[in-house]
């Protein structure tokens, strides 16, 4: 459609499509300039762009290469369906459903993509800038060189003009030598510069590589029915509070519950004695030790446990003994 027709029909807000049989409502701002000469190519590009925008899963989200390839194939199939008009309604419904279900992951991937492109563009700009600077430096170098050469020549000439005729050959030789020296110094300087730049570039490349770490997109856990083979991403468990004893309670006792006070006439005296308390003596220490000793070992039955202990050690020596006999006999 030509620009003036668009202006004419749609300048007063959305209007139905002027093509006969098409009942879509169109808006002016959705119109744009045609890029390709063939309208079909243009249409396919549009569709592709839209589908790619929705089905924007990345390779690292899949279990393996095969699953990713399947996904790509599926995407192509959907695009071709839309382009060639097969199953348009179903494909559209699928797409819409998928878009609704995976809003978050789509958004995240889009953000990632835009970030990537941004960083790519940035890097490109930097590289261009650097190239420009290099070129400039080279040009300046060249200019300097030329200027110097001219100045030297002039100098020699003036000395030749002022000097005695006998010195001419010596002056010419000297001038030549100076020139040579300068050029060799320059060359070595250039080498050094080049090496420096190469090293710099290497560092930059590495830095860029480090910055380009694949960020794991947090795809939503509800596996979409459309795409198969997605990695199961489980959210990390919330960290438990730190427990130095690994679940063991060192104050737990099986026979008694420690009290803060026990009636005892001679312990009460200690409780009130400032001389004893001043050093930090705590009667509860005595309580805990005493009560522990009250019950420690109550359930240890030496008659059983020690004889078990002996039994476990005895058979070993016995068998060793019989083995020894066996080797003696045979």
């Amino acid at each position: 459609m030509c620009e003036s027709c668009v202006d004419r029909i749609f300048s007063s807000g959305p209007a139905p499509c002027p093509v006969a049989g098409c009942h879509k409502t169109l808006r002016k701002n959705r119109f744009r300039k045609q890029t390709f000469e063939d309208i079909n190519v243009e249409r396919e590009v549009d569709i592709r762009k839209r589908v790619m925008h929705i089905l924007n899963r990345r390779e690292e989200e899949f279990d393996n290469k095969r699953a990713y390839d399947d996904f790509l194939e599926q995407r192509e199939e959907m695009i071709s369906n839309l382009v060639y008009g097969n199953d348009v309604a179903k494909t559209e419904a699928d797409l819409k459903k998928y878009a609704a279900a995976n809003m978050d992951s789509i958004k995240a991937n889009q953000a990632l993509e835009s970030k990537e492109t941004a960083s790519f563009l940035e890097r490109q700009a930097i590289e261009q800038e650097q190239a420009r600077l290099r070129r400039q430096a080279a040009r300046q170098e060249y200019d300097n060189e030329r200027r110097e050469m001219l100045a030297d020549r002039e100098n020699i000439l003036s000395r030749l003009a002022a000097g005695k005729p006998g010195d001419a050959a010596a002056i010419a030789r000297e001038g030549q030598k100076v020139l040579l020296k300068k050029s060799s110094a320059r060359r070595s300087e250039e080498d050094r510069m080049r090496q420096k730049q190469a090293a710099l570039r290497g560092v930059e490349a590495r830095r860029a590589g480090a910055g380009q770490q694949p960020t794991t997109a947090d795809a939503d856990s509800e596996a979409s029915s459309l795409i198969k083979g997605l990695k199961k991403i489980k959210p990390p468990e919330p960290e438990k509070p730190y427990d130095p004893f690994g679940g063991f309670n060192p104050d737990k006792r099986d026979y008694y519950v420690l009290q803060d006070y026990y009636p005892s006439s001679w312990l009460d005296r200690i409780r009130d004695d400032v001389r004893m308390q001043a050093g930090g003596y705590d009667l509860r220490e005595y309580y805990s030790r005493t009560l522990l000793e009250t019950f420690a070992g109550l359930g240890c039955f030496i008659e059983d446990e020690v004889s078990n202990r002996n039994n476990t050690t005895l058979p070993v020596s016995k068998s060793a003994h019989s083995q020894g006999i066996g080797t003696d006999v045979f």
Binding site: Y262, P263, S264, T290, L291, L292, F295
Partner: peptide, 21 residues
């Protein structure tokens, strides 16, 4: 150990003894 046991019994006699876990 005996001291501990007597301590607990005296506490029970005063009505302040805690039951075992």
């Amino acid at each position: 150990g005996l001291e501990g046991g007597v301590m607990e019994l005296q506490a029970i006699a005063q009505g302040s003894g805690k039951p075992g876990p």
